[in-house]
């Protein structure tokens, strides 16, 4: 990486190998995880992995400073496209997933013409309107979208059977690993994009769009690029969802679901790559372990709403800011002027 701004803090050789070691441990833990869970918890783990991709792709869009309310609908475009391709045209499933992602990206490319004439509130509401239109089209046109009931019996991933090795993707464990591979690869790409020149430009557009324009950055094109890339991965997440659950309907991609994505991203914090992932994991665990355990299922929206409000009021930088804050607090308690100066950020 020639870019000094990106490489500066984290890239000592020691730090880097430490980071790699952490990654190895993380993957080892993720590989063991499903065997420690019950069947229904395995199913939740699959959805969690898919949601990680959804919220991470959403973060790429927020890098340019725009908050969309249509991201879940874009995910739905991928889901519907992949499902219809497999069901109606007999396209093999892994391929249909990829085409679904491309359809979601294409939809975003078309939508960017009206939407990126707006900023801020206007973009938020515009993306909401565009998403609702797409959703109403699914609802209204029974052929081919299946109307309010949506599509059912969507083809699953084909089994792999090579004599000595056979994998049945109806099993949540197997689908978990499949999703894990796809999502990890996608996250890697998203991470590289953010650390590339393009990603830096996204940041520049967020904080200083006039300045970026004045040095020759075409902000419209870069905003569109962020939107298209984010939508592609949202579409992939949608396809993964459709072929796992086997059914999609317009309600599944309604604005209520979008609220959950917002909550994950905001509670986790969008300043770093891992923030939204942290948000979705922590909230899903709270939701499944605590709320379901206590039988508080009906109260779920209330608790999510309260968490959202509290984090906007008291933790505006998200859960990710807890670590550094805690460290700073500990150092302050230990005193010592050198320590206090060390981790100011």
């Amino acid at each position: 990486m020639p870019d000094p701004a990106v490489a500066a803090p984290a890239d000592g050789p020691v730090r880097r190998s430490f980071g790699r070691l952490r990654l190895v441990f993380l993957f080892a833990a993720l590989a063991v995880l499903p065997y420690l869970l019950s069947y229904s918890q395995q199913e939740i783990a699959v959805l969690l992995v898919i949601n990680v991709l959804l919220v991470s792709s959403y973060r790429l869009l927020t890098l340019t400073g725009e908050w969309s309310l249509g991201h879940v609908v874009i995910m739905g475009v991928g889901a519907y496209a992949s499902a219809l391709l497999a069901k109606r045209l007999g396209v093999p499933v892994p391929l249909s997933l990829l085409i679904g992602g491309c359809m979601a990206a294409g939809t975003a490319a078309i939508l960017s013409f009206p939407l990126f004439r707006m900023k801020g509130f206007y973009f938020l509401i515009g993306s909401f309107a565009a998403g609702e239109i797409i959703r109403l089209i699914w609802k209204r046109f029974t052929d081919p979208f299946g109307g309010p009931k949506g599509l059912k019996r969507i083809d699953a991933f084909p089994d792999i059977d090579t004599g000595f090795l056979s994998i049945d993707f109806y099993e949540p464990v197997n689908y978990y690993f499949l999703a894990l591979v796809v999502v990890s690869a996608s996250l890697f790409v998203l991470y590289r994009i953010e650390r590339s020149r393009i990603g830096l430009t996204f940041h520049a557009i967020h904080w200083q769009d006039r300045l970026a324009e004045s040095v020759g950055v075409d902000t419209f094109r870069y905003r569109t690029l962020a939107f298209v890339i984010a939508s592609f991965f949202a579409g992939i997440a949608g396809g993964l969802y459709a072929h796992y659950v086997g059914a999609v309907n317009p309600t599944r991609f309604s604005v209520d679901q979008m609220v959950y994505v917002l909550v994950w991203a905001i509670v986790g914090g969008t300043a770093t790559f891992h923030g939204p992932i942290l948000g979705v994991v922590v909230l899903t665990v709270i939701n499944e372990m605590v709320l379901r355990g206590l039988g508080l299922d009906t109260a779920r929206p209330l608790i999510y709403g309260a968490i959202l409000i509290l984090s906007v009021l008291y933790l505006p930088d998200g859960l990710e800011s807890l670590g550094p804050r805690l460290r700073a607090w500990l150092q302050r308690r230990r005193g010592g002027p050198a320590a206090a100066g060390g981790e100011a950020a």
């Binding site: 509130f121 609220v259 917002l262 905001i266 209330l302 709403g305 959202l308 409000i309």
Partner: peptide
């Protein structure tokens, strides 16, 4: 202002759940 909007989304969920209760 964006924080206010997001907080109002949280409030919306609370009101909805209270009505269900």
């Amino acid at each position: 202002p964006l924080g206010g909007l997001i907080a109002s989304i949280g409030f919306l969920l609370i009101l909805q759940t209270l009505a269900v209760f």
